[in-house]
Amino acid sequence: MKLRILGLFAIATLMASCSEEGAVSLNFVGTYDGEPLVLGESLSYLPDYEISLLESDFYISEVALTRGSEVITLKDIDFVDFTNNNFTLENAIAGINLTYDEIEAGTYDGIRFGIGVPPSQNTTRPADYPSSSPLSKPGYYWLAWESFIFSKFAGQADGNGFFFHTGTDELFRTFTISKDIVITEDNTSTVKIILDHKDLMVFDGSLYDVKAVPANHDPLELGPLENFVNNYSSAFSAQ
């Protein structure tokens, strides 16, 4: 009998400690020049031509909350897929939610994630993963680089295709967005993370001439790609 009470007590304590956890939902919203990004629609660009975007997606990795120097990892890899979301204004406004649970309740001061596949995982290949893993996507590996493709960004400029594909360890970037995030018991706190796509296309203070250079994916011509991945830090903001 005593034992049983002890057992019950143990369960109760366990439950109590479990319930001091909450969740965070990262709400990724894609915009263009501050407006919700609707793929396929005409967007003003350089003075002599407009563009439309048709594809924007990327891996986020080592997703973590920060508290001072403490880093609380939430997920090793995930995929933000505006391509299959932002085809209506409604979807564009709603954005994409990636939710992570079992986070200790408390106040955190930022969110951190990498864009792409971290070097430690970039020695693997899509075929190494079960179809349930975002890393199994066969279209996100580039044989010539022996690297995952970290992000795809593509569209048309006056009817002509253009695209940026990033990849290779040199182009892996980690970002920390400062923001107070309060996780409370059994609740989901939402952090809106806005990615402005026009900001991604700024090169040397002007917009990149995608009509002149439509294909940007050559690891030997890192210039534009390096610029592109560095742009993420100014293109992201949190609300």
Binding site: G40, S52, L54, A154, G159, G161, F162, F163, P214, A215
Partner: peptide, 14 residues
């Protein structure tokens, strides 16, 4: 040829 134009022709077809 780069294919026939359409609003959703894949950008990688150049």
């Amino acid at each position: 040829s780069g294919g026939h134009p359409s609003p959703n022709k894949d950008p990688q077809i150049i």
